[in-house]
Design a protein around this nucleic acid. Structure first.
Length: 592
RNA sequence: GGGACCGUAGUUCAGUUUGGUUAGAACGCCGGCCUGUCAAGCCGGAGGUCGCCGGUUCGAUCCCGGUCGGUCCCGCCA
């Protein structure tokens, strides 16, 4: 039995009078009494099938009872449509297939939602029936883009002589970083594998093994809370290279991204990508992943505040904090209610103590905290900030690590509200010179900003082991596009001594380091080349390629915000027998 | 761990402000008519434990408490 000679997206005017067989899903049925149309759909497209009572009564009778999403095979002949019936919206819109014989392969029950319209059902329902949602044009298109992107990435790295190596999914739990997903061992009861947060250590060991250009498209797992752009299992393009410095990595990554965005969007990314240090990104944008598609940059207000009578801000400056602001064009029209809402928002979500504001008139400031500034200072502020009549100045004064991120969040929020974000733009950049460590109040020690194997900046190397070590810059770098962190990496430590010093800085004692990373420290003794690498978030790249803000739109079977799969019910309880085999007794019995 | 919003026919929503007899609409589904539609059209019909549990009340979809589920955000995500 032959199911198809062509796909449902294939036939054109040139095929008229060809006998064909098509198989697919009944997308829609339009019954005109003596004439029935169905749109037959597969992943290649749709073709209209005609059943004409006067041409073939048997097929016509069979078509009477067809329902949406039935799977059928149609034998028939390609016929041209009358000129005025051509559907210009469909690639196959110039022809019909006149049905000779209809075979119903698999009738479908009424679906819980209509396949033609993804918006017609809640996400909850669509996730429960994900295999139905995957039939929609939008998701099929997304998944095909994803598939082509895999191929493009592989081709790129193979052409550059990279070797693709699979690393273990069952590995040893590493204490730093995200929470691990654990897998119990049956053979070694009471012991656990961890799923990789990334193949970080393996790829470094591959460098030591001499595989000097490695890449892998690899699943990673992090047991942390989800977001619109974060799933517990996600895919990285993992890259590592030996005998390289930052510039070599930048060149390879920029080449890949330029290729992908050119191929899928016809977009030419800048060459080279602009670069910002972490410090500059924080000062100007209040974020280490700035969205460069719009302005609203953070501006310094310290000198003006010093000349004011606003003691709240002056004491912030005296205490070593910062006062910065941003100018909202036309913001003077904001109502008091809107400003109050923004104030509540920034206090609740971004820990700022408040949000000060002043409106700009022709030559002075008014409202808000303007009364604390003299006329001359007001003029200086307007001039200095490049503000104009009708603008609004927002200000935050706080300790540095609150003030800058709060204003950064405000910047993004205001740009969205004001429609200042040009959606078609793509603005990539490198962010460099991250701090090597930051203080973790909860753990009461310094932790790695990137990871513990990141090399310190050469210029700051002398500070290792001194009290100034907390200010050391790292050789880490991120790629940011439109506010999304799409890649992150670093030049790694290849010296056992430096690695030991960094562990010391992180409060990881030699015994602990030996127990947890002994195999890496040992490997570093046997001839470790200088090396570095990067990992690109593949899902986020595909999001940009298809133009969605939701990571679930580019993953075939995603999890909900609470990390469960509505379709298959994972995670689920397991039998006592399974637990017994693993030597596991539940402490609380779990939630039934 | 915290905050906000949401949960009512198969589906998307309205209704709840001010508790009260038959809870509506559209789409889908079923039946009928219809030979050029392509989201076909017209006529008719069926379809509801108002997420779940408890409380208040003569009476709860509506008010209160809890709980489950979904979405977004803060924390978290080396």
């Amino acid at each position: 039995m032959k199911y198809r000679t062509h796909t449902c997206g294939q036939l054109r005017s040139e095929d008229v009078s060809t006998p064909v067989t098509l198989s697919g899903w009944v997308h829609a049925r339009r019954d005109h009494g003596g004439l029935i149309f169905i749109d037959l759909r597969d992943r290649y497209g749709k073709t209209q099938i005609i059943f004409d009572e006067s041409v073939n009564a048997d097929a016509f009778a069979a078509a009477k009872s067809l329902g949406s999403e039935d799977v059928v095979t149609v034998d028939g002949d390609v016929v041209a449509r009358p000129d005025e019936m051509v559907n210009a919206n469909l690639p196959t819109g110039a022809i019909d297939v006149q049905c000779r014989e209809l075979r119903v392969l698999s009738p479908a029950e009424t679906t819980p939602f209509v396949i033609t319209d993804r918006d017609s059902a809640s996400e909850e329902l669509r996730l429960t029936y994900r295999y139905l949602e995957l039939r929609t044009d939008e998701l099929q298109s997304n998944m095909m883009t994803r598939s082509k992107a895999y191929q493009s990435v592989r081709q790129y790295f193979h052409d550059l002589d990279f070797i693709e190596v699979e690393t273990p999914v069952l590995m040893k739990s590493t204490p730093e970083g995200a929470r691990d997903y654990l897998v119990p061992s049956r053979i070694h009861q009471g012991r656990f594998y961890a799923l990789p947060q990334s193949p970080q250590i393996y790829k470094q060991l591959l460098m030591i093994a001499g595989y000097d250009r490695y890449f892998q498209i690899v699943k990673c797992f992090r047991d942390e809370d989800l977001r619109a752009d974060r799933q517990p299992e996600f895919t990285q393009i993992d890259v590592e290279m030996s005998f390289v410095d930052e510039e070599d990595i930048y060149a390879v990554v920029e080449g890949l991204l330029r290729r992908l965005f050119q191929e899928f969007l016809g977009a030419s990314l800048p060459d080279p990508f602009p670069r910002l240090t972490y410090a500059e990104a924080m000062e100007r944008f209040g974020s280490d992943r700035p969205d460069l598609r719009f302005g609203l940059e953070l501006q310094e207000l310290a000198s003006h505040v010093q000349k004011s009578d606003f003691n709240a801000f002056k004491s912030v400056l005296d205490g070593g904090g910062r006062v910065k602001g941003l100018v909202v064009p036309g913001g003077a029209a904001y109502s008091r209610k809107m400003i109050d809402e923004l104030t509540a928002w920034i206090k609740q979500y971004h820990k700022a103590k408040g949000l000060a504001w002043m409106k700009v008139t022709s030559d002075a400031l008014e409202g808000g905290i303007s009364k604390f500034f003299s006329g001359d200072t007001q003029a200086d502020i307007i001039n200095d900030l490049g503000a104009g009549e009708g603008d609004l100045i927002f200000m935050v004064g706080d300790e540095t690590k609150v003030a800058l991120p709060a204003l950064g969040a405000l910047r993004v929020e205001l740009a969205a509200r004001e429609g200042l974000i040009p959606e078609g733009d793509l603005r990539p950049l490198w962010v460099t010179d991250f701090p090597l460590v930051e203080y973790d109040a909860e753990a009461r020690r310094h932790v790695a900003v990137h990871h513990p194997f990141t090399a310190p900046n050469e210029e700051d190397l002398a500070l290792l082991g001194t009290p100034e070590a907390k200010n050391i810059r790292s050789r880490g770098y991120d790629v940011v596009i439109n506010g999304y962190e799409v890649a992150g990496g670093s030049i790694r430590i290849h010296s056992r001594e430096v690695q030991q010093q960094v562990f010391d800085l992180l409060g990881i004692g030699s015994a602990e380091a030996e127990a947890k990373f002994g195999f890496l420290l040992k490997a570093l003794r046997y001839g470790a080349p200088p090396h570095g690498g990067i990992a690109l978030g593949f899902d986020r790249l595909v999001m940009l390629l298809v133009g969605t803000r939701q990571i679930r739109d580019v993953i075939a079977f995603p999890k909900t915000t609470s990390a469960s799969s509505l379709m298959d019910g994972a995670p689920a309880n397991v039998s006592d027998e399974q637990l017994r085999e693993l030597g596991i007794a539940l402490r609380t019995g779990g939630k039934a």
